[in-house]
Design a protein around this nucleic acid. Structure first.
Lengths: 213, 213
DNA sequence: TTGTACATGTAATCAGTTACATGATTCT
DNA sequence: AGAATCATGTAACTGATTACATGTACAA
């Protein structure tokens, strides 16, 4: 097993000054792209939906919003402006959109598969309607390949663990294997719609299928 | 969905002064219980095995060891004492054992299922040979129950997400459901050995089945 | 009028990462 | 002799959590 990539840390990314955004920053950008929201809305979202996995408290969200604002990646429009506590509704700027696009499009790595699988899932979600299908497709293909490889890595430990450890260790590792197998299978399943319409020269019809809301 | 439990933070736990240990502290305690090791050994372990998920750099491990030492939860024996850089091999003290036992035995909560599933797995691993089987059994029973409940929570979001979001959101949520279903099933499977030998007075025979390597 | 939800924020603290410093020992 | 690996640590920084501060709008 190789060591964790150091990651350049502090070089350029589209439309922002300073160094890269935190995971939360990217998550907020994605959520604001889905629809404009206030800080309070975002807190509620994290508190009441499965987005809770990426969690966060007002103490993290408000500073992160301010940072995004400072970097001109989002803009806030004042609602209830007369009031002393106006409600700020944020949305991404073009630069913000670019940063979000760059984030979701960036190549999947082995380390992300192991250490940040949930972030990977979030990137996949925010990809939708933002990048060309080919990008999502490549994402899923790389993902399934890397996960398969990791499954093999884990499996290589099974004999040792079964021999050395007590029973619980083996059970845990087996679960790890199953979990990643499930992920790889999911990725391949998600890939199906991209592969289906190979033949048939007449266009649209099956492309115009996602816009059903 | 309820909000995250605040957690008392800073009250007594067996054999330690000051506040509770970090996740890493507990992980180290567990690994040192498995077998005595040096800081370097621990670094290697995190770098080269699936323990990498709980990761960590020397910059985290050495301070954590020092803290455990200060609190008398581990003791180090000097090896190669003549040398200028003696190798410290640590093992848990009785107080450390007690802290570890308390950690692994502590009741499973919904929040842990959602936010710290991997820590939960680690607790299960370190339980082995440390606590009575009844404790592990209760752990798995609670776990499977809580996971089932969370699956139902997630499923409740499926209709909304399928209606509102684009396709990727639904796919991600579906994967979340599958993943937790797998976990619950795993817990039930792991539970089998605890349940099996109810009847039949002659012992072993069906217990001696896991040692097939 | 009192409490609850709305709404935004700050300050103290904490755990962990990155990057570096230091030197010993063993292999080639 | 030089490289790799063994072995332990420190300092600066980052991002998040906890707990608190502040005040509005509305419903019972």
């Amino acid at each position: 097993m190789s060591d964790r990539t150091p990651a350049p840390r502090g070089s350029a990314d589209p439309g922002s000054s300073g160094r890269g955004l935190s995971a939360l920053g990217h998550a907020l950008l994605g959520l604001l792209h889905e629809q404009p929201r206030s800080g309070y809305d975002l807190c509620q979202l994290f508190a009441t939906t499965p987005m809770a996995r990426f969690s966060s408290s007002p103490g993290a969200i408000y500073p992160a919003l301010k940072q995004l604002d400072t970097r001109r990646l989002i803009v806030g429009t004042r609602e209830r402006a007369a009031s002393l506590r106006p409600r700020q509704v944020y949305r991404p700027t073009p630069a913000g959109l670019a940063a979000l696009t760059a984030w979701v499009s960036k190549p999947v790595t082995r380390d992300e598969v192991i250490f940040e699988a949930d972030l990977l899932m979030l990137r996949f979600v925010f990809m939708d309607g933002l990048v060309r299908p080919a990008v999502a497709r490549r994402f899923l293909e790389t993902l399934s390949g890397l996960v398969d490889a990791y499954v093999r890595e884990l499996e290589a430990f099974l004999p040792t663990v079964r021999a050395n450890s007590r029973r619980h260790g083996a059970l845990a590792l087996e679960h790890g294997v199953e979990r990643h197998r499930l992920l790889a299978e999911w990725a391949r399943r998600a890939l199906n719609p991209f592969k289906a319409p190979r033949r048939s020269p007449r266009k649209t019809t099956r492309t115009a299928r996602s816009r059903t809301t």
